[in-house]
């Protein structure tokens, strides 16, 4: 039962993998890790969500249309924005807009460059645009989250520094800049470290998938390198833009940092 080089899994074969969860359950029980419920919920949710995604993607691939691709992109972008915002409840309204615009803008630009300029297929071709946008948006979201969290933590732990410099008559932008530089670095490091170990410590997910489905490894690495560069760029762009647009919302034209007294 092969098709384009990959063994098609029957439902029976596939369900065997769930046996491994028994190992996890047993270890959890033995080690008193009380996360049995989470393990079950997580496994069920993953199964249901991916099954649904499978059906949706099958439908979209069989009926390719710019409308479906766009809807999928829109949903994914909104979901990424929603996740980033719900993890950073401290953001003011304008800062939230900064996050949304930065994620959507950077994600779409990098995706378009990848699909149109590098791969050179139609932007609405679901086979390329959908999986690539998932990787790009997901990583952009993680980067922005990390950047915002680092900015907030740093700011909160250095309130005295902010207050001192404000009292000295320093421009708020200049006071906040080191915090955003630091946050950008924090956001970028995991991606860069990931690139350093790539191919030695692990074969990355996308490449593994392509090889499993029969793609020549030499082609798979080209895609992998391309996506890693795209990811590093989108993380950098989205985080930079979020922080730069965002910190402007933290002070007013009286050079007051309202945020200082709120959080």
């Amino acid at each position: 039962m092969t098709n384009a080089g990959i063994v098609q899994l029957s439902i029976f074969q596939f369900s065997l993998i769930y046996l491994l969860l028994i190992v996890v359950l047993a270890i959890m029980k033995k080690a008193n890790v009380n996360q049995t419920k989470l393990l079950i919920v997580a496994s069920v949710r993953m199964t249901v969500q991916l099954t649904l995604a499978g059906f949706v993607l099958t439908y979209i691939f069989e009926n390719p249309s710019p409308l479906f691709t766009s809807l999928y992109l829109l949903t994914m972008t909104l979901f990424a924005i929603h996740r980033a915002l719900s993890k950073n409840k401290w953001l003011n309204k304008s800062f939230k807009w900064a996050v949304a615009l930065s994620l959507a803008g950077s994600g779409l630009i990098i995706l378009a460059f990848f699909v149109i300029v590098v791969v050179r297929v139609d932007f609405f071709n679901p086979q390329y645009t959908i999986p690539l946008s998932g990787m790009i948006m997901g990583n952009a979201m993680t980067g922005v989250n990390l950047g915002l969290k680092s900015f907030k933590d740093n700011f909160s732990s250095q309130r005295k520094r902010v207050e001192t410099l404000l009292n000295l008559g320093v421009k708020p932008k200049k006071i906040l800049l080191p915090f955003s530089q630091n946050a950008l670095e924090t956001a970028l490091l995991p991606t860069l470290n990931n690139m350093v170990g790539m191919g030695i410590i692990s074969l990355p997910g996308m490449m593994t998938g392509q090889i499993l489905s029969g793609t020549a490894p030499t082609t798979a690495i080209l895609y992998q390198i391309a996506i890693m560069i795209a990811i590093a760029t989108v993380v950098c762009l989205a985080t930079f833009s979020t922080l730069n647009l965002g910190i402007r919302t933290l002070y007013n034209d009286r050079n007051q940092i309202e945020f200082l007294h709120e959080n």
């Binding site: 250095q158 309130r159 005295k160 520094r161 207050e163 001192t164 404000l166 009292n167 000295l168 008559g169 320093v170 421009k171 009286r254 050079n255 007051q256």
Partner: peptide
């Protein structure tokens, strides 16, 4: 201008940094 004001009316606050 608030920056100029703060430089002329300088507050040594309790938040020592």
């Amino acid at each position: 201008d608030t920056l100029k004001l703060r430089q002329e009316v300088l507050l040594v606050g309790q938040s020592v940094y």
